[in-house]
Amino acid sequence: MIGSLYHPGDTPLHRIPAAAKLGFLFAAGLALFLTDSPAPLAAAAAAAALLLAATGAPARSLWRQLRAVALIIALVFAANLAFADAGTAFAVLCRLSALVMAAMTVTVTTRTSDMLEAVERGLSPLGRMGLANPAKVGLAVALTLRFVPEIFGHYREIRDAQAARGIAASPLAILVPLVVRNLKAAEDIAAAIDARGFGAPRDGASPKERHRP
């Protein structure tokens, strides 16, 4: 139902571990805001464009992602040209383009599952402190991806039933039954997850503790 923006390939960019790519992207994002002079920013934008081209992803799918943000960046460029000077406008244009293309490079060359793994590993120190549970994050991601086609199916059913009764399409008429139906399903799903022992204490806990609901 939901595709991924990942483009399979075997370029050097694909082989860099996800965490390293995310770290580099973060550092590059900070560095791009350290300078306002056009020359290094233009070089960064050119480098990011080369990286994005080196991913081997088809231009059409890249452009589909770039289109919306390119429009905003163009508007920003026009606003800066009108209210500031041409140098600033060019510098901001280069910085935003470099950031967007570098970030897209990471997304296009990294599997969603590898990215999730990097996030879970990043969260594990928090998990040891008891602040976040990486396993729960993984379960929540998996559940959401499972729910999307489910909710969409419910939406179609309710819409068809209402159309058969001559009710015009309206978010108001659809959303209440859609949300209520899914809320009811949520209780069954939660019970099913509990019944499979998710989040139960690990071995070593007393049987009494293990069977606590």
């Binding site: 595709g3 992602q65 919306a68 950031l99 570098a102 970030a103 990471v106 969603t112």
Partner: peptide
Amino acid sequence: GLPILAGGRGGLGVFAG
């Protein structure tokens, strides 16, 4: 990296915009 925003947008590029 999932294209789940309105209009099929997604990925880290969204955060850079």
